[in-house]
């Protein structure tokens, strides 16, 4: 029989769910104070900075 072996390498937090983008501001504030946001022109018209 083949021995069981497993490996996962994942982010420290993986959050999934409708509306969870509202947590982004709070989460970012927990790990930094100067946030660079990389995005593209498609996303910017709808972008509203969070408190």
């Amino acid at each position: 029989m083949l021995q069981l072996f497993g490996a996962l390498r994942l982010p420290a937090s993986v959050i999934f769910g409708s509306g969870q983008r509202a947590a982004l501001g709070m989460m970012t504030a927990q790990i930094g104070s100067r946030a660079l946001i990389c995005t593209d022109a498609r996303m910017v018209p709808t972008w509203k900075p969070m408190a």
């Binding site: 930094g32 946030a35 996303m43």
Partner: peptide, 21 residues
């Protein structure tokens, strides 16, 4: 700007941009 955290918001290219930066 000297960022201490990088967000990538978008498709694969935007997220990969954040990772490379």
């Amino acid at each position: 700007f000297n960022p201490d955290v990088v967000l990538g918001i978008g498709g694969g290219s935007c997220m990969d941009m954040a990772k490379c930066v």
